[in-house]
């Protein structure tokens, strides 16, 4: 209780001009802090037992009101975490460079599903101190062997050399030997995945 009083007195000097209660989302408050407003009073030494006044009227229970369905509940809802990652609503443009998946991609014989964060599941696996680079395409559905042939063809054209791949049917992924993540991502975006 006593600490409540002390802190009130301590900060009263900082907010000299504020008489009103705190408002919700007060816009542009002019609370200016200058060196003049900070001063230490030496008349009463609260940390000294002899000078410290006795606490009067200790309340057991403070009065409060319960507001059911308050209008500020929207602000509380805003603070609650997402239950599931929100779906992306279609927008005119995506300045960050994120490309949305297309509906036509579902008609192809193969399919690369997006991750739960709406990104392409194409990753770079580095091992042996960065010497071994493997590009991995995960979450593949449909005809994986056809997809493998198409990827090999595309990489042969762009890289002017044969590129080794590994197909894992049970794990539903394709590993490409080398760092071709950007090329593969661009190819996937072109297909509409």
């Amino acid at each position: 209780m006593a600490t409540v009083w002390r802190s009130q007195r301590a900060f009263a000097r900082f907010f000299v001009g504020k008489t009103a209660r705190i408002l919700n989302n007060a816009s542009d408050l002019g609370a200016k802090l200058t060196t003049a407003s900070i001063s230490v009073s030496s008349k009463q030494n609260y940390s000294n037992y002899a000078h410290s006044p006795f606490v009067k009227n200790i309340k057991e229970q403070y009065e409060f009101e319960i507001v059911k369905n308050p209008p500020e509940w929207a602000y509380v809802e805003r603070l609650m975490p997402f239950e599931t990652i929100p779906n992306v609503t279609p927008k005119a443009a995506y300045p960050s460079g994120w490309i949305p998946p297309k509906e036509e991609a579902r008609n192809l014989p193969y399919f690369i599903a997006r991750t739960r964060n709406h990104q392409l599941p194409i990753y770079l696996d580095l091992s042996y101190r960065g010497m071994r680079k493997i590009s991995m395409i995960k979450k593949i559905d449909g005809d994986i062997w056809l997809l493998n042939d198409l990827i090999k063809e595309h990489l042969k054209k762009t890289q002017n050399r044969y590129v080794e791949t590994r197909v894992h049917e049970l794990g539903r992924f394709i590993e490409v030997k080398g760092d071709f993540v950007t090329t593969l991502c661009n190819w996937a975006y072109a297909q509409g995945f």
Partner: peptide
């Protein structure tokens, strides 16, 4: 904008938020 003493938007210091019963306890 928030008040310099405010932590959350729209909720003042001193309030107790009851998530289960969807009510706010405000000191009087």
């Amino acid at each position: 904008r928030k008040d310099p003493r405010q932590i959350f938007y729209g909720l003042e210091p001193g309030w107790v938020v009851n998530l289960k019963d969807k009510c706010i306890l405000k000191p009087r």
